[in-house]
C-alpha cells in the first residue's frame, strides 16, 4: 500500500499492462484447463463432444478398486518420500556442516542427481534393481541376504520407486537443512559444546532451530510426491498389476484408453488432494515465518 501514496508520475512507471502478456498465457494454458477440468470430469467426453453424466465418473473412480488404489498409493508415496527426505536429509546436513574435509565435494555429489532426468534415473535403477543380474541384488547376495524382487513384487514395487525418488531428491532436502543449520547463531553451538557432545548439539540446537527447514522440506516433498509420474511410469508403469499405480499414472492410463472424462475426474481428485494437504501446510509455514520477523 506504501507505493500508492507516491506521486502519480512515479506510479505511471509501473503500469498495470505489464501484467497482461503473462496473464494471457497463464489464463489460456493453465487457468482455463483447470476450470474446464471440473466440467469435463462430469461428462462422457471424446474431445469433440461431451455428454453430461453427473457424478458417474467419480462413482466409477471410487467404486473400482483398481482406480481408487491410485489415490491410496499416492498418499503412501508422498508420506514415505517426505518422511525419508526429512530424516536422511537432516542427518546428512548435520554431517556435512561438521568439520569434514571434502564436505563441499560431498554436497555437490549428493545434489547432482536432482538435475538428472527422471527418465534416465528410472532406466538406470530399473537395471540396478533387476532381480537376478542387477547390481543391488548381486551385492546383497554376497552378504548372504535373500535378494528381493524390488520392482516385480507387488508388495514392494511402490516402496522401491519411492526409494529411488528419495535418492534423486535428497539433495534438495539436504541443502535446505544445511542453509537452516548455517543460519543458527554460533552462540547456541558454543553453549551446546559446554553442555555436552554431538548429541546435545543435535537434539537441543539443530533439531528445534531447524524446524522451519523441516516444514520447507515436507512441503516441497509433498508437492513433488503427490504429483509424481515420471519415475513410476518409467520404472513400473503402475505395475505389477495395479500395485504401484498412483493418481497420475491412472490419469495417463485412462487417457490412453480414451476415457477422457474419467481421466479428468482423476485429475480433479488430484487437485483436491493436493489442495487439502499442501494448502494448510503452506499457510502454517508462512504464518511461522511471519511470526519470526
Amino acid at each position: 500500500m506504501m507505493s500508492e501514496s507516491r506521486p502519480k508520475y512515479i506510479l505511471r512507471t509501473y503500469p498495470h499492462w505489464f501484467y497482461i502478456p503473462a496473464a494471457i498465457i497463464f489464463a489460456i494454458f493453465f487457468v482455463a484447463p483447470t476450470v474446464l477440468a471440473f466440467y469435463f470430469s462430469l461428462t462422457r467426453w471424446t474431445l469433440f463432444d461431451a455428454t453430461f453424466i453427473g457424478l458417474e465418473n467419480y462413482q466409477r473412480f471410487f467404486g473400482d478398486p483398481q482406480l481408487s488404489a491410485g489415490l491410496r498409493n499416492t498418499v503412501i508415496y508422498a508420506v514415505i518420500t517426505s518422511g525419508l527426505k526429512v530424516i536422511i536429509g537432516l542427518l546428512l546436513a548435520t554431517l556435512l556442516t561438521s568439520r569434514l574435509w571434502l564436505k563441499d565435494l560431498l554436497r555437490s555429489i549428493i545434489f547432482f542427481p536432482v538435475l538428472v532426468s527422471t527418465v534416465a534415473v528410472g532406466i538406470t535403477f530399473s537395471v540396478l534393481m533387476q532381480p537376478t543380474t542387477g547390481l543391488i541384488n548381486t551385492v546383497l547376495r554376497t552378504t548372504g541376504m535373500g535378494p528381493p524382487d524390488w520392482l516385480g513384487n507387488p508388495g514392494m514395487a511402490l516402496f522401491s520407486v519411492a526409494m529411488v525418488d528419495v535418492w534423486r531428491g535428497l539433495g534438495i532436502a539436504t541443502m535446505i537443512y544445511i542453509a537452516g543449520i548455517m543460519s543458527i547463531p554460533d552462540d547456541y553451538f558454543e553453549a551446546a559444546k559446554l553442555e555436552g557432545g554431538a548429541w546435545v548439539k543435535f537434539r537441543y540446537v539443530v533439531l528445534p532451530l531447524a524446524r522451519n527447514a523441516t516444514f520447507t522440506v515436507i512441503l516441497l516433498s509433498f508437492i513433488g510426491g503427490l504429483r509424481t509420474f515420471d519415475l513410476i511410469w518409467t520404472m513400473t508403469r503402475g505395475g505389477p498389476g495395479f500395485a504401484s499405480d498412483v493418481l497420475t499414472s491412472v490419469i495417463y492410463k485412462q487417457y490412453q484408453a480414451g476415457f477422457y472424462g474419467l481421466s479428468t475426474a482423476g485429475n480433479v481428485v488430484l487437485f483436491i488432494l493436493v489442495t487439502i494437504i499442501v494448502y494448510p501446510l503452506m499457510r502454517f509455514l508462512n504464518r511461522r515465518e511471519l511470526a519470526e520477523l
Partner: peptide, 13 residues
C-alpha cells in the same frame, strides 16, 4: 505453484 496441470483439458484447449 502447487496445482498439477489438468492434462486432457489442456489438450482440448
Amino acid at each position: 505453484l502447487i496445482l498439477p496441470p489438468a492434462v486432457v483439458p489442456t489438450i482440448f484447449v
